[in-house]
Design a protein around this nucleic acid. Structure first.
Length: 301
DNA sequence: AGACTATGTTAAG
DNA sequence: TTAACCTAGTCTT
């Protein structure tokens, strides 16, 4: 789950439900005690995402920067119940009654597992577990982090031209380029593999062999897929005609994806067995039938 | 109890 | 190119 769409969902959630009042911050696990003390009592003013980074802004002018890594996840509790957002976890909202203390702050349940940060307001609580990065930074430091990130298709300030300048001059494979956050921010293993399948592109195609038109189409497709992910809450890349039941809303796997996690299974379009390889330590999935470099096809049109 | 997996990144070799 | 790190769930012994 933690590809770009998840971080934008998180940012929107904090923006909508945590703004306005003071926030109590703590670190039940203890590893973030000092950082929590710095934001404790402050007002959370804004939630913002850039690629896979989440920035929570406080009225002190400081920011909480969170990167979920592979395993990080937030849990939330509010009037709507409890739910998780981040790494794969048991899903399903649980209805629990909210109780408030004398100051009007929500009383959350006892921490479960290693909770790095716990945030509490008068309307709900949020627990963060397993992030690869969690730190309080200044505005200047935030801008420095963002300066190292490439354009994020989900942000209004994204400049695809910047990504194209790198891609069009690189001998590196498009599959590797899509994973480099300084080239394009927010793409992970699933969006990488699925977008290349939808484009009919051989993952090993050098960046500089892409035409401008194909790059523009790839960027546009990624933008649409990411927006769908923000809306749906999980990644859906299959077109209705390629699902067992075109009428039904696809559930997260097995019907949502073309190639990811489908090693050896028949391609939904051409029937070829899906191939899994390895690139820079990550599993790279593709369909040898639909994604041959010589005569690229457009699966499903 | 231990191995293994996961939608990620960084630092060391 | 490899290992390390963060966590929790699932599978194997």
């Amino acid at each position: 789950m933690p590809e770009g769409h998840t971080l934008h969902r998180l940012a929107a959630h904090f923006d909508k439900t945590f703004g306005g009042g003071a926030v109590r911050a703590s670190s039940p696990q203890g590893r973030f005690a000092e950082g929590a003390a710095r934001i404790d009592g402050r007002v959370l003013t804004t939630g913002e995402a850039h690629g896979k980074h989440l920035f929570l802004g406080f009225d002190s002018g400081e920011w909480l920067r969170v990167h979920l890594g592979l395993y990080g996840a937030w849990s939330f509790g509010d009037a709507d119940g409890e739910r998780h957002l981040g790494a794969p976890r048991a899903e399903g909202a649980v209805r629990t009654a909210l109780t408030h203390d004398g100051d009007g702050f929500v009383v959350p349940p006892a921490p479960v597992g290693a909770v790095r940060v716990r945030l509490i307001t008068t309307s709900g609580w949020a627990d963060l577990r397993g992030p690869s990065a969690c730190e309080v930074i200044t505005e200047e430091e935030k801008l420095a982090v963002q300066g190292r990130l490439g354009p994020d298709p989900l942000r209004s300030d994204a400049d695809p031209e910047r990504a194209w300048r790198v891609v069009s001059r690189s001998r590196t494979s498009i599959a590797a380029l899509l994973m480099r956050q300084e080239v394009i921010a927010g793409i992970g293993n699933i969006y990488r593999a699925e977008s290349l399948f939808r484009a009919g592109l051989d993952p090993m195609t050098p960046g500089r062999d892409l035409t401008r038109e194909r790059w523009d189409a790839l960027w546009a497709d990624l933008t649409g897929l990411l927006r769908d992910g923000v809306r749906d809450g999980y990644i859906i890349t299959t077109r209705p005609e390629h699902r067992p039941d075109p009428e039904a809303r696809p559930v997260p796997r097995p019907d949502t994806l073309y190639v990811c996690y489908r090693t050896g299974e028949p391609c939904r379009v051409c029937g070829s067995p899906i191939v899994a390889g390895e690139l820079a330590g990550r599993t790279l999935y593709h369909c040898p039938g639909c994604q041959s470099g010589r005569a690229p096809t457009r699966p499903g049109g």
